[in-house]
Design a protein around this nucleic acid. Structure first.
Lengths: 219, 219
DNA sequence: TATAATTGTTAGATCAATCTAACAAATATA
DNA sequence: TATATTTGTTAGATTGATCTAACAATTATA
């Protein structure tokens, strides 16, 4: 069974993987806030345990088993976030730190009960998919708001970033998941967008923000 | 801030303390499932951090700060047990292992919300007192069933042992907290007791069991 | 009280997870 | 292509938590 530290490495590898499933040691180290030698030696030990495939000077890839284990940790994280929001009255900006801890609890029944009480949700409070109990992850197709065009109507479906600061920013503008936004205009100079939605006839969003908002195009 | 390991040592010291607040190294080691040298060196390090008072060849005592920290971990444990039973449908025999893990989560709001949702309970599912948020513990006065006399009517209020096996034993006899028992007879030879209660006109309980059942004498 | 049993301590090793310093390989750039 | 930059590796140290073996102090018992 993976230690908490190992689980965190697997999770990071899962999240950082490029389309080929590869992760650089330096990105891994940075993402976990450890030095490169630390990441390097941990990767070697993960390899010995069969969680990753690794060769000197090559990027790291998760094995099938590593991917599944990572997905199951992410499942616990996202179920916990949903539980905190839906059943315990937390704001979506408050749940990450707690979920980072609870995701390492070993107690299947605890998470099964959460799942049941939540009605088997498929996405978390930030629109990210919740892997199923076999570690399978559905791929949701959404595009970033930044890539949409003036005149389009879109529905906010997920976020690429769930930092408390960003979520506070969205709270202040009542930008919650499910909201329908109409794109009024785009500024060619800085790529900012002006949108309207229920209760907000005009809000201007910077490029940085638009890139982090994932939407489904309605029309 | 105490590590998970340190918190477990503080908790053990709190629970093992005799009326003078003293604990032997060997009892501590046994209770935590570690060797005596391990407990010994950890006690030295807890002393350096101000959690305990300790002198060579003398028993260990918690400092005021150590006692408070221990009580607050126990608070998290017992609130969690109550939450699992009352809000998540766990049986009282299933909650200990999960609570042993969740008690080490650092997230005040998580436990505050549990407390609120539970209506600020003062005892856990096994009748043990839940320390308040300052680490103060109420002393409940109950006596063991073993010390009661034939003819008395008593109410089951707590247990001195909450092992899953014992709780299963009680489940099988519908012996839940709050139940009123009438002591029908006691066997002089083996100190077993025969009692009656709602739906159970006659149940014989061994001395071992009677000692672990804490009751309030009604008449 | 002398001896045996229990309890506690010291010394030294191990393992996981981390670090810094120094160096080597791969990649980018002039 | 030669050189500089980035990325990755090795070596060696550190810290927390654990162990066993050996020994010492305390307590119980014959």
């Amino acid at each position: 069974m993976a230690s908490t530290t190992e689980e965190n490495y697997l999770k990071a590898l899962f999240n950082l993987a490029n389309p080929e499933g590869e992760v650089n040691i330096s990105d891994l180290a940075q993402s976990l806030g450890v030095s490169m030698p630390t990441a390097n030696s941990m990767v070697k030990s993960l390899q010995k345990s069969g969680w990753v495939i690794y060769e000197k000077y090559k990027p790291v890839t998760l094995t099938k088993q590593g991917k599944k284990t990572a997905a199951l940790v992410i499942r616990k994280h996202r179920l916990t976030e949903m539980f905190l929001v839906k059943k315990m009255g937390f704001g979506w900006e408050e749940v990450h730190e707690v979920a980072e801890q609870i995701e390492h609890i070993h107690a299947p029944k605890f998470f099964d009960r959460m799942d049941e009480m939540l009605g088997y949700p498929t996405i978390d409070p930030h629109g990210s998919p919740i892997p199923d109990d076999q570690g399978r992850v559905q791929t949701l197709s959404h595009v970033s708001l930044a890539s949409c065009l003036t005149g389009q109507v879109v529905q906010l479906t997920a976020l690429t970033n769930s930092s408390a600061d960003f979520l506070e920013f969205l709270n202040n503008r009542e930008l919650t998941l499910g909201k329908e936004l109409k794109i009024l205009s785009q500024e060619a100079y800085d790529h900012s967008m002006t949108v309207s939605y229920a209760g907000h006839p005009q809000e201007t969003l910077s490029e940085k923000v638009c890139e982090k908002l994932l939407v489904r195009v309605i029309s």
